[in-house]
Design a protein around this nucleic acid. Structure first.
Lengths: 139, 139
DNA sequence: GCAATAACTTGTTAAAAACAAGTAATAGAG
DNA sequence: CTCTATTACTTGTTTTTAACAAGTTATTGC
């Protein structure tokens, strides 16, 4: 969508309206972000694991989406090794809270299409991390 | 995303994988489609009403999304007058079934952001229409 | 006759997405 | 100790899509 500012006062949503759906779509309204969240909910943590998922996300798009999800405080990045730099990604509580959104979408597809995979009855307890505290980061 | 086929056997999803979330995002994974569905759930039926919503959808994008939603059997178009042509759009049962998806997204935003509008406790009973029956249209 | 409205379509431009390739830093095989 | 692999990316290039602006068709109301 971008050609309108996409941020307001505190670097957070309301880019288009104060409708909560519009706000959600400002953050998640593309074809890849929720797939990354799904992988995290399933317990994946590493860049190469996201790349290896069946949908075949392009590497530059993955890098971009991880940055945006971090900015939205849905995901945090943790370096577990410095040389060579190795990173792991975790959902924040806010990110884990997207589980019901993902399940609602899966349930809709299951009701109306045949031949898709079964979504899990519950998420394999993925590790959660608190977001990095930064001055005046809304959420 | 498109540079991959985006359709398979019967003109229906599975463009990227058989994951139900991926399937949902093939249909709804952009910043505008669900906003149109929201308007329909709220009882709006006409092109100019969708245009008038607070987010300011561009007219060519609206025309495109209405076509795609019709193709996905989420929406049906009904001409209620021929000269000049005047159209109304309605959700199919499959489209109305997106209510929980919209509400899940709104609930997520309400939990994590302040200052957004209240989503309705229940949808104002929007009229529903059966999809036009076309040979081998999946759903 | 003229402005207004509804429902679009048709250009044009700017931004993203998709693809291909390259980089830095190491580990391990032989 | 050279060669290949792996991880986590970045940097170009091309193709698609989105955003903006404007025009079209057919009528009603003034």
């Amino acid at each position: 969508m971008p050609r309108k500012p996409k941020t307001t006062v505190a670097g957070e949503p309301f880019a288009r309206s104060c409708c909560p759906l519009s706000c959600a779509l400002d953050i998640l309204g593309d074809g890849w972000s929720l797939l990354v969240v799904r992988d995290l909910l399933m317990g994946k943590t590493r860049y190469c694991e996201f790349l290896a998922s069946a949908e075949g996300i392009p590497t530059n798009i993955l890098a971009d989406r991880l940055k945006r999800l971090q900015h939205a405080q849905v995901v945090v990045k943790e370096l577990y090794q410095e040389n060579p730099p190795r990173a792991a990604y975790y959902l924040t509580p806010k990110g884990r809270d997207l589980g019901p959104v993902v399940l609602a979408m899966c349930a809709w597809v299951s009701r109306h299409y045949e031949g898709t995979w079964e979504p899990p009855a519950e998420w394999p307890q993925a590790e959660i991390r608190e977001p990095a505290v930064s001055p005046s980061a809304g959420g």
